[in-house]
């Protein structure tokens, strides 16, 4: 099911959380809303779900206006950041909740509810936990139960608010791959909110980068990473160095740490810098330089072998050549 957002505005007092956002979400895609905290991504997600009403603009599902449809009638699945599982109900009853609150005429018979719940619990590989209570589960397990509960009502769209935010790094890695596979199986239109660029770039079909309530760029992960539209996107999607650039274009030049070559000998257009510090843990060596004479810090990532070859010592002079430089026109 496709979703169309048009001219969405949301204010909280004098703070504008979402500022005139237009967005089209394709049927069956997995979309990431990526941005720093306060960028309006969660507000936008809640507006899609109907939990929050926009001050202006419209939401339509599959071409049908849903702006005034109540959250309970929108048929969306929502996975909350802290899962919001019902503590007094068993895992089984948590997943069955959406089926049990249906109006009597639409309610499934008990056996079918049971069958459906168990199928979902098998899908998230936790059928053996059906009679436990939420507080007896680990964070990752709760997350998957929250997902099963949201899927039980056969939502037209699945919304996830910082789905892995409260988990530790390893569980997170595992779960996001699992989510990607699950989406490929179930294929429900899904939108998830995250502030972790790695997560967004790894999992999503398309990434929407947000800042100050506005959309900075929309595109496939490789697109936004390789062809950032604004300095904000460039800086937000990974480590970056701001380099002195020609006075002529007056803008800024940016280079990623892995897009800078280091040499002992001076070369054309190379920047002179003093080596400050380096550490080689894993396949990549991280080096810190101070430009001459401004002493501005530049971070460089080199293959470990190259770092060994250079055998730099703190205080040594070196010459840096950006292999890929991004320039943005100065804002008018």
């Amino acid at each position: 099911m496709s979703i169309e957002l048009h001219g969405i505005v949301k204010r909280f007092g004098s703070f504008t959380a979402v500022d005139n956002v237009d967005l089209h979400i394709e049927t069956g895609e997995l979309l990431a809303l990526l941005g720093p905290s306060g960028s309006g991504k969660t507000s936008l997600l809640r507006i899609i779900s109907g939990l929050e009403a926009p001050d202006a603009g419209s939401v339509s599902f599959h071409g049908e206006d849903a702006t005034d449809t109540h959250a309970r009638d929108r048929q969306v699945g929502f996975v909350f950041q802290h899962y919001a599982l019902f503590g007094h109900l068993t895992i089984f009853e948590n997943v069955a909740f959406g089926l049990r609150v249906r109006p009597r005429r639409q309610r499934l018979p008990e056996q079918e509810i049971a069958k459906k719940v168990m199928t979902l619990l098998e899908l998230v590989q936790l059928d053996w936990l059906s009679d436990r209570y939420p507080h007896q589960l680990s964070g990752g397990q709760r997350q998957r139960i929250a997902l099963a509960r949201a899927l039980a009502v056969e939502p037209r769209v699945l919304l996830l608010d910082e789905p892995f935010g409260a988990l530790d790094a390893r569980v997170r890695q595992e779960l996001r791959r699992w989510l990607r596979r699950l989406h490929d199986d179930v294929h429900v239109t899904s939108v998830f909110v995250t502030h972790d660029q790695e997560e967004a770039l790894e999992v999503a079909d398309r990434v929407v980068v947000m800042n100050h309530g506005r959309i900075e760029q929309i595109g496939a992960p490789a697109d936004v990473y390789d062809h950032p539209a604004t300095p904000f996107v460039f800086e937000f999607l990974g480590h970056v160095n701001r380099l002195p650039s020609d006075a002529a274009n007056g803008g800024n030049a940016f280079a990623r740490p892995h897009d800078i070559a280091v040499d002992r000998a001076p070369a054309d257009a190379a920047l002179a810098a003093r080596f400050v510090h380096g550490s080689a843990i894993g396949p990549v060596a991280r080096l810190e330089f101070a430009l001459e004479p401004s002493a501005q810090t530049v971070n460089v990532e080199l293959p470990r072998e190259r770092y060994r070859e250079l055998s730099l010592r703190p205080g040594d002079m070196a010459y840096l050549t950006p292999t890929r430089l991004h320039q943005f026109a100065a804002p008018a």
Partner: peptide
Amino acid sequence: TEQEEAATVLGAGGWQTFWRITLPN
């Protein structure tokens, strides 16, 4: 209000949310 919101999105009405979620909690 997270649990109430969760119940609402799952399709529960105001009374259902109160009796099934808020009150037991």
